[in-house]
């Protein structure tokens, strides 16, 4: 495989994984595919913010806190999310479904404050839409895949 596909391959593997991260086997497989030492692939997986080397919740809510969003009430969004989920940033809810953390700008500042979940950005958030988003994600666990 050409090296320029490395990050794409790692992201695709991570997305397809059950727990949303690159485990040792995934790293080893990619290392072989790209003829690179495992330690190099591991270093890369730890370097980039979107690549995870630890198991993740099913839905990771990323709240943008760069200044355009932060001063458009993303701090309130964080408080609402924390209230709904009752976990601190980085911690996973008891049912394994949710966690949340901050992220720098995701390039959707015109609809800030925003939350990114996997590849989807939800914008112009209010307390009600944050609540609805979490409900929708929770309900999607029964069969329907949320994308």
């Amino acid at each position: 495989m050409n090296k320029e596909n490395l990050l794409d391959t790692l992201l695709a593997r991570q997305n397809a994984s059950k727990e949303g991260y690159l485990d040792r086997e995934a790293i080893a497989a990619v290392a072989e595919e790209f003829a690179m030492p495992e330690t190099r692939v591991f270093e890369i997986a730890s370097y980039y913010a979107m690549l995870e080397i630890e198991p993740q919740a099913k839905y990771v809510l990323e709240i943008c806190n760069s200044t355009p969003c932060y001063f458009s009430k993303s701090n309130e969004v964080a408080a609402w999310v924390e209230g709904e989920l009752d976990v601190k940033p980085g911690d996973v809810t008891g049912d394994g479904l949710f966690s949340w953390h901050y992220t720098p700008c995701v390039g959707a500042c015109d609809i800030g404050p925003v939350i990114k979940v996997r590849d989807t950005v939800y914008g112009d958030l209010t307390k009600e839409t944050v609540h609805a988003l979490i409900q929708d994600l929770r309900n999607a666990k029964n069969g329907k895949k949320f994308r």
Binding site: L7, D8, L10, Y48, A49, L51
Partner: peptide, 10 residues
């Protein structure tokens, strides 16, 4: 043209 993906690093 080949598209290359970043992975979150400003």
């Amino acid at each position: 043209i080949t598209i290359v993906s970043g992975a979150g690093a400003y």
